[in-house]
Design a protein around this nucleic acid. Structure first.
Lengths: 212, 212, 212, 212
DNA sequence: CATGAATGAGGATTCATTCAT
DNA sequence: CATGAATGAATCCTCATTCAT
């Protein structure tokens, strides 16, 4: 748990060798935090897996909290990058916007299996590791917002459903799917770990949300 | 001597006094695990807050894992009890089934704030604490299933959307809401911690899912 | 997280300072195990007497078992060194070989009072700490074996008594003497702790075994 | 290790049921101490294996030390009983006295595998559990002493080898054999755990000690 | 005689973090 | 930049022993 103490900021790695070390630590740390949780992750293990002396971790990241903060911020960056990927969508995609986003979110989680874990961990410890570092140009979800507004105008989407609600549902469903596969498989009695079951579920959810 | 990692099962408390102690441990443990996560929760703290000698924890629950297993199983029981509460619903509720369930789930999380945390923690550690002692009568969600089928027949709900998909979406949204209030507030730029914002969001999601 | 009883091997101390620490731990540990037995010896006590932080013990030896293993292996090495000391014996010593060895063994135990204790402890716990790193040249007892064979040829020793039996008796008597002084003093009614009594006993045993 | 404290003597069991309980505790305790050593043996385990509440142990034996004291005293009694069994020997056995005793001692250890362990443990903890309770009629080894004296007169045994030395060697060899099977097997390179190897060794030792 | 509940003092092992080189 | 040595404060778990019924 969080220690109240003088915030020891890490230093930036300046040499090439230093940066490589720092990156290795970062990658291993992400995997470890995702796998074991904040308290379950061990500095010793991270150092060993990164093949470096643990003192390096303290030099670059200050302390365990500082290390997780970096991991968390990078996780947020991933989220924003995912968003920017929607820049290619155009007017013709408006009718299918919902299913495109849902699909895309599901795929995103597939290819970033540690994402939801870091997210959930940060929520568990109380969201104490701050907001993203890089200030965004304009609002988040800028382009999607416009497309959704178009869709509302064209009556594909309900005028009384805000973009926030719309995106919240899509984010929630995909995130929940990924993070609760195991327990929901037991609860619902269908095997969410099976990919064909998953495909069918997506299909049906799409129909439920945006179907005709 | 060599340690044989014998799975130390806890004993049942047989006297009244013993049962009271066991219960106190259990309640404190639930709160601690929910607040700190599996690794973050400390046996010493639980013992202290329960006002008992920590050895009692080992006597009654075997070890930390055994203690969490009990907490987890009880959490699952809550889930099933929630389900049974829908027994009162009748045919007249079919048109509004979706919003009733969504509302109910949101309320459930409000009154059991530790629920999602225990759930998420179990997912994080890999679902190793077992399934419920399911002495359940019939399928889970028995009654809701029937009502939903009625609704499909009456064309309130799409014939091609299975009950599982329907309930998955509702469960997912409510759970995600509760567990990601903090980070989604930052991400979306609207304050999900504010109860009027929450009400509006529920309203809009209802409209999105079942509107008109 | 679930504990995977990974066999934590200790690391080698590489710096001069590190080696000194490791040695200090080792010496104190030998004394403690000898004095208190495997379970009776306490890591905390060893650390304190060695004047180091107990974590060092785990860093260098892995765990208590690993520490005892080192102690045990070193004890075995002592045994082999003792053997090599017989290298000086020559043909002229053949007639007195038995008494020379017996004397030598008794002296050995006198100057290594912890030896039999470590040996007995290892036997008590079931011999689970492995054999020596035997980088031995040829058979154990190499030279003695040859001398004994000579003695058999010259009819000082019975042709039908193998070297193993011969050495077993000598080893057994000396070891038993050392390890059972206390209880045998009570049992036999003579004070084996008194050195003149001891001398006389050795004399008599010598006569019994090899006399005329 | 020994606690310095008010000696809490256990009470005698008076009822039939009480005596049965006491005996069960005693038997289990002997086995546990023999198997695990003084510090390795656990009161809880003894209670569980004896199928009684551990409070009984304290009622009957005072404390752990008191329990071991009983075990130790009984072990000594066994020794004396073994001795009394030689009462049957007569003048005609004098020439073979040595081999008869050796054989008998080896057999004794075979049928009382816990004996040497209790003995060694008592030696390890420093012989603090006292001498045997029942005062012996006359000297220990009474009858054997006489027979040996006869043997000396008849020149089967050296006049200058006291009975104590004679019996010490026999006791030592048999005891050492039993207690060091494991490690001596490694050291000598012959498998002392194999019964035919054992038989041969006894044969040879007999020849060495009393041969011709 | 018998037992379940309770406890204080350990006891092995680990952790995040700092020091010295 | 990099590392091995070192440490104090946990952290889980156990033990002998006592209490209350």
């Amino acid at each position: 748990m969080a220690k109240l103490k003088t915030k020891r900021e890490g230093i930036e790695a300046s040499s090439v060798r230093g940066r490589a070390t720092r990156d290795r630590i970062f990658r291993v740390a992400t995997a470890e935090f995702a796998a074991k949780g904040y308290d379950g992750a061990r500095i010793d293990v991270i150092a060993e897996k990164a093949g470096i002396n643990k003192q390096r971790i303290y030099a670059y990241f200050g302390d365990k909290d500082g290390l997780f903060t970096e991991v968390w911020k990078h996780t947020l960056d991933l989220l924003y990058e995912e968003d920017s990927q929607f820049g290619d969508l155009g007017e013709q995609d408006v009718p299918n916007l919902g299913r495109i986003i849902l699909k895309s979110y599901m795929d995103f989680h597939d290819s970033h299996p540690e994402f939801w874990r870091i997210f959930v961990i940060e929520n568990l410890v109380g969201g104490r590791h701050g907001r993203p570092s890089r200030r965004r140009k304009g609002q988040p979800y800028g382009h999607l917002r416009e497309l959704y507004a178009m869709g509302q105008k064209k009556e594909f989407y309900d005028k009384n459903v805000s973009f926030e609600a719309f995106i919240f549902v899509l984010t929630g469903i995909s995130s929940f799917y990924t993070s609760n596969k195991k327990t929901m498989t037991d609860t619902l009695g269908i095997n969410l770990l099976d990919s064909s079951v998953k495909e069918r579920l997506i299909e049906e959810m799409d129909r439920m949300l945006f179907g005709k």
